[in-house]
Amino acid sequence: MFFGLMPLIKMTILMINAIAILSEDRFLARIGWSTATPAEPQTFGMQQQIVANESIKAKTMNLISATRTLMRIPLIGINSLLIIYELLLG
């Protein structure tokens, strides 16, 4: 049972993919995990302070929404790279 570096990379990418495809209004809002408050640039510093004092659930929600906004476009490139790698060498 060798679990090398490549499976780890693949696992991380798959996990990020899984987080990134969670639908905001069809799934997250239904179970109450939606970050409903839109962050305005002016109050961002204050809001971050509030979020930082909250619970594990709030932190998880924050992590999910951050992953969704941040990784959406890079994931396209990463996924296509991985597909090409798998086609050539897998």
Binding site: F3, G4, M6, T12
Partner: peptide, 16 residues
């Protein structure tokens, strides 16, 4: 190589 990769993976997983 396999063992090194495996041990590295364990350490990185732990850090994550």
């Amino acid at each position: 190589g396999y063992t090194a990769s495996f041990a590295f993976t364990i350490v990185i997983l732990e850090i994550i």
